[in-house]
Amino acid sequence: MKYLDSLREFMRPDRVFDVVYRPESAHVDIAQRDILYIEDLTVSFDGFRAINNLNLYIEAGELRCLIGPNGAGKTTLLDILTGKTKPDSGSAWFGRNIDLLRLKEPEIANLGIGRKFQKPTVFENHTVLVNLELAMFGGESVWSTWRGRISGEQNDRIGGVLEQIGLAEQRDVLAGSLSHGQKQWLEIGMLLMQSPILLLVDEPVAGMTHQEMDRTAELLRSLAGEHTVVVVEHDMEFVRSIADRVTVLHQGSVLAEGSMEAVQNNPEVVEVYLGE
């Protein structure tokens, strides 16, 4: 039976054979408005269902916030989308034509899905400028990293991102001496240098001051439209200030979805959050 199953899996009509499948050459197809299709996704760790029959659709260009109590499966979902975790069942499609579950981490990154982790990981011994430069040339061969110079056009692009993330003045400052908030922005900037289509942002404002939060909100809002942005966040105040649409996760599946107002008045959500 095992062989029959694997033969069936191999012959599935909705797939190209693995040997022919070239995800790097594929261009994400978003003719149908939605950019991310997640259906019936389930993953469990040692019997605990971190994601349980999750269905979620994200529209191209929107700014979506994922909220939910601890253990709701928010970070696990991002892990699956970036190829770090393999789900037990279900599907996750990027556009209509790319099956994310079949790809490895670097392939997904090259397709244009960028992820910002909770803890900022910038190169502390390099300046802000060099951090962005390294992000821009990601994927280059050894030879061209040795011989390559930055063209004027590329310089302008780095300048543009520096303006966008508000670090133009800190251009030549070592990333290690930036404040926590500035590091987070730099990391977002490094994602932007890779021209992502979809940005997955994990807890961007943890540990930030109020002023920094406001600037982060502004930054993320400015990115939506050109990019699709998915933000995972605990801070309700912050979510209220940025989100078009909010999805509440609870015990691995979607509990409610809609505008912040609608979600907040949903009795089930109120119950889960107890008073929030």
Binding site: A109, L134, T145
Partner: peptide
């Protein structure tokens, strides 16, 4: 002094992050 050197220093300080940027 080339970008290769800057990538090398980045490898020294955070190998996984460099891999994540797409460098080999």
């Amino acid at each position: 002094t080339s970008r290769l050197g800057r990538v090398a220093v980045a490898v020294r300080d955070g190998e996984d992050r460099v891999r994540f940027l797409g460098y080999s």
